[in-house]
Design a protein around this nucleic acid. Structure first.
Lengths: 181, 181
DNA sequence: CCGGACTCTGACGTTGACGTCAAGGCTCGG
DNA sequence: CCGAGCCTTGACGTCAACGTCAGAGTCCGG
């Protein structure tokens, strides 16, 4: 346990769907460019077990579209939620677990009881993350409301003031804050 | 120019309102505790010009309530918006500029024309930040929607499945995602 | 089969935001 | 006025998330 990251877990099933053969598979240079990250970052993510690309017999990394999507997700979790890579690892592992659950869910040998249990687990994992995100969203909403209140105060001053008849630099209203909801 | 941070700028006016005399004024230890940051952080913020507390003739820092609020704002901008301290410096400088504008706005010697110009500048500065925050909020909203969609898919599977009559571990619904809007 | 482009694995450097420690100053109640 | 406790300024350490560089290996079109 410890090297079981994503591909290791998914490989327990005999290969299913998305990672179909005959895909382009980019080298690290092209992958880095397309994912808008550095090659170093890709290697680093792999080192932390966030990403496990395929590799050639010679040991060169080959990235699938799925891998690129995973990188995009990592960046999203970094920049949007401000999670660090360890926390992101947890999220990704959960999502992998969910994918794995979907597989054994399909398996006919799985009992109904087991299916129920798996589904519950799956939802529980996702709702964890959802709570985090929702909290952040609420906080941001509050922040924005505060900002809008301040702006409105200034804007009120503006209208209460007799504007200087012919203002030479009147290049239109930027937008109506608080009015776009 | 360069050492003009916040108190330097506000001090151009002969002292007005909030920083009234006779305030408690905390030492760095108490301030750190109340602001929930380390003493080192307070010194660091000051070093970057984000915060300029008063100080005793002997050179000991003294923090006002206003200073504590400023620290809270710094933390908010850090954790909520993910800004770094340089970016935060810009935001705070803008907000200081706005406060300063409010002052000269009150000044009777200020011409109506000047008042107009100041108000425009003020609003422009605030709307800058607002745009940033709004963008982040929108992105987060999208992220959350995506998450909810996934959860709903799982939840659908749950209801389509005949639940195992007497489930021994059925400890209630955590919450209804997508239902609390 | 071979040379140029691409990639590999260490290993050390960097940046931001502090943590920590040492060697002293400042403060204030008694 | 004096000592316990709070505070000061360096200066160096740390941690995450990479950047950068060297020396060697891999791939592939001609």
């Amino acid at each position: 346990m410890g090297v079981t990251a994503h591909r290791g877990a998914a490989a327990t099933a005999p290969a299913a769907g998305p990672p179909a053969a005959g895909e382009p598979l980019l080298g690290i240079g092209a992958a880095a460019e397309r994912a808008r990250v550095s090659e170093r970052a890709l290697r680093y993510y792999q080192q932390l077990g966030l990403l496990v690309p395929a590799c050639t017999p010679g040991g060169l990394r080959r990235y699938s579209e799925e891998d690129l999507a995973r990188v995009a997700r990592i960046r999203e979790l970094q920049t949007l939620l401000g999670l660090n890579l360890d926390e992101i690892a947890v999220v990704l592992r959960n999502e992998d677990r969910i994918a794995q659950i979907r597989l054994s869910y399909q398996d006919e040998r799985t009992s109904d009881e087991e299916r129920w249990r798996l589904t519950r687990e799956c939802l529980s994992l996702q709702e964890d993350l959802r709570a985090t995100v929702e909290a952040k969203r609420a906080a941001l909403e509050g922040f924005l409301a505060d900002l809008d209140a301040r702006i409105q105060r200034g804007r009120d001053l503006l209208v209460s003031q007799p504007q200087p008849a012919a203002s030479p630099l009147d290049e239109g209203e930027p937008a109506s804050p608080g009015g776009d909801r």
